[in-house]
Computed example of a mutant assay.
Amino acid sequence: MDTIRLISPDHDHAKDIWAFRSEILENDADSEDQFAGCMSLDTCSSIEEWIRICELRSNKATCGEVGSQVPSDTYLAVRQSDDRIVGIIDLRHHIDHPILGTWGGHCGYSVRPSERGKGYGKEMLRLNIQNARKLGIGKMLVTCNADNLASEKTILANGGVFEKTIDVDGAQMKRYWITV
């Protein structure tokens, strides 16, 4: 696996963000979690709109303008060797919210289909744990569908401690805590 870094969405990566979006839509059409951690990338009509939404969501004073009650930061996981986006991950500043505190957790992430199985999800979460530490988050709730073994391995590799499985509208979700 090549080295990656997490950066805020920017216009320099606009074409690759849209290519990432297209790849997810094409390869994960049957997945309800296809855009986990990507905010509203699937419903935006332009990169400019999505970057603006990410900016507004990152601030407590403006996150409500885009329908969010909890501020969050969105990061592009960019491979350093070729500046290609390999994934997108977000970090919610807190989980004092009925959905986030139950099954949404502190973060969600999506790895580009052509880059899966290379360890990028594990590294994205590791780097995001460092971001959580900077925000003063002591423990992160990270969840995954019970049948998503790749995500479960990613969480466990980053120190996730299984708490329990819960039912969310007929789907089984596993809850893990990571000490930051």
Rank of each mutant, 00 (worst) to 15 (best):
117 G>F: 15
45 S>P: 03
118 K>S: 08
118 K>D: 00
66 V>R: 04
105 G>Y: 02
110 S>Y: 02
60 K>T: 03
63 C>P: 00
32 E>R: 12
48 E>H: 14
46 S>F: 13
24 I>H: 03
77 A>E: 05
34 Q>T: 11
91 L>R: 08
42 D>R: 12
71 P>C: 05
104 G>N: 01
28 D>M: 11
48 E>Y: 08
17 I>A: 00
53 I>F: 09
116 R>N: 10
69 Q>M: 14
112 R>K: 15
110 S>I: 10
92 R>W: 09
107 C>W: 02
58 S>Q: 09
81 S>G: 01
79 R>C: 03
78 V>Y: 04
115 E>K: 06
46 S>T: 12
79 R>T: 01
66 V>T: 05
96 D>H: 15
97 H>L: 09
87 G>V: 04
109 Y>D: 01
115 E>N: 04
91 L>N: 04
17 I>E: 05
112 R>C: 01
61 A>E: 12
78 V>W: 06
43 T>N: 12
51 I>M: 13
62 T>K: 13
18 W>D: 00
96 D>N: 15
71 P>A: 03
106 H>S: 03
41 L>T: 03
77 A>V: 11
101 G>A: 09
89 I>V: 15
23 E>Y: 08
85 I>P: 00
114 S>R: 06
21 R>V: 11
86 V>Q: 09
39 M>T: 12
113 P>F: 15
82 D>K: 01
41 L>F: 07
62 T>I: 15
18 W>C: 03
40 S>Y: 15
12 D>W: 08
33 D>V: 02
75 Y>Q: 08
12 D>F: 11
99 I>N: 08
104 G>A: 07
28 D>R: 06
31 S>Y: 04
82 D>C: 11
109 Y>Q: 04
45 S>N: 12
37 G>W: 12
22 S>D: 12
108 G>H: 05
41 L>Y: 08
19 A>Y: 00
102 T>K: 13
92 R>I: 00
30 D>L: 15
46 S>A: 03
47 I>G: 02
112 R>H: 11
